[in-house]
Design a protein around this nucleic acid. Sequence first.
RNA 1: GCCCCCAUCGUCUAGAGGACUAGGACUCAGGCCUUUCAAGCCUGCAACAGGGGUUCGAAUCCCCUUGGGGGUACCA
Length: 510
Amino acid sequence: MTRDGDSPARVRFAPSPTGHLHLGGLRTALFDWLWARKTGGQFILRIEDTDRKRFEPESLDSLIRGLRWLGLEWDEGPDIGGPFAPYVQSQRQEIYLEKAQELIDRGHAYRCFCTPERLASLREEQRRTGHRTGYDRHCRRLSDEERSQREAEEIPSVIRFAVPLEGDTTFTDLVRGDIRVENKQMQDEVLLKADGLPTYHLAAMVDDHLMEITHVLRGEEWLATAPIHKLIVDAFGWDMPVLVHLPVILDPSGKGKMSKRKKLVAGKEFLALVHEFQDAGYLPDAMFNFLTNVGWNFDPEQEVFSREEAIDRFCLDEINPSAAALPYEKLDWLNGLYIRSLSPAALKVALVPYLSRQLGLSEDELNSDGRLDVLIPVIQERLKRLDEGADWVDWAYLTSDELSYSDPKLLIGRKMDAAQSIAMLRAGALLLGEVEPFEADAIQGAFRERAAELEVKAGNFFGPIRGAVSGKKVSPPLFESIVALGRHETLQRIGRATTFLEGLTKEEGK
RNA sequence: GCCCCCAUCGUCUAGAGGACUAGGACUCAGGCCUUUCAAGCCUGCAACAGGGGUUCGAAUCCCCUUGGGGGUACCA
């Protein structure tokens, strides 16, 4: 039933807007989307905002941006509507109320008048005495009389599900098989809260049914509540959708579920939130490729694949049931691969916003001259993330004054002395003053020729020049850097570097 | 504590009883290339958690142990 030829599935991603979307959520959405596209069905976005205390309005925006960033377009959702609108649970309150009442009428639920205080002290007592925690079903045993009396007094109440006292419940998880749990292990979960809003247990089951959801993909943290959900769905007399619990994503250390942000032994910070990956300059295509292979495997012999290929091969019953840590190094490698596959023009478009932010220059300024056009092709293969671009080109945007040569090691290579470096700088300046055309190949040719005449190694010649031009030990290829800077600015920098070294040798001579 | 799930190189994974001297990828190490740094190419290190079964034969099936994870809310 999950092989080729599956009928169109209706799959929903149903996050609660309680904060920024993290990679685990994004992966769930991705698998949802993949399955909907694979079967030619629908991908539905539903907002589960039934917790007023934890609701954060901004997270909705963040959520939508994150999904769009990865390219997961939904077919029905709060912003575009659909045949089962509204897709925001807080706007569906009457439905849940009605359904909860229906369960009471059928004897599957009951009103509970216990105060939060009683519940808390009950829990405390259970913990203290080493008993298992849980509601003691006090109100389930209320007589009709007692119940109507409390209702008449308008004592605040919730509606709880009445779990069968005996027997057991079996449900099926597509990747784990049948799972059986004794009913006595389950709680009379709250279905409708005192504020009139439903809990997940009610709202999700009702909406999944009403919205004709065929497959529910959700995090493994829901596995323990699945039997309750089965019981609720059974109580209504509905069909259970296919359940797939996606393995949790572990903290990079492999210990515990990934949370917002944690530090690893190396003291290195790992990203977890979708917008953080965005800001760091991971490409959506790379992220798509990466995430698809966590919890599922495209092909053990093929690491890189397109969205179309992924849709074509994706299969729910191949999902891996075991928890996994994100292989961050692989993400970097993949991202580098995708960056290299971009055309220089496309990379420029992607890179300029990052450069603008980090260098404090406007995008117009960055686009106004040819520096980036020369530099981008040569830094392309050096980038793993877009936010590394600034480190590769910042020197080109410094004025002569801003560039200082305080460290002689920058200009003097290993096994060289200051006098030799000065000679190299002078020779370089001489060449750069007259070489034509002022292009990387021509300049390189002239430099190599001169190196041969001088009988010095290319590295010894280029090193001091590199230091003078970029102010760095490590820079993009020298001759492209020189071209990006232009003849005038390059000569200026070499001149200043020469002066600096000369001052140094004089001091030593004293 | 109780319930449930999971278990192959450091990490992501392939493996659905014989094709496994366990394959791929990332990382790491070494080499080639080389103007720095990368990229690229080549080589290498590295795993079936342990113990019992079942079977002619087990990484693959069963049981136990251990380890890890999840849940135990008027949160999702």
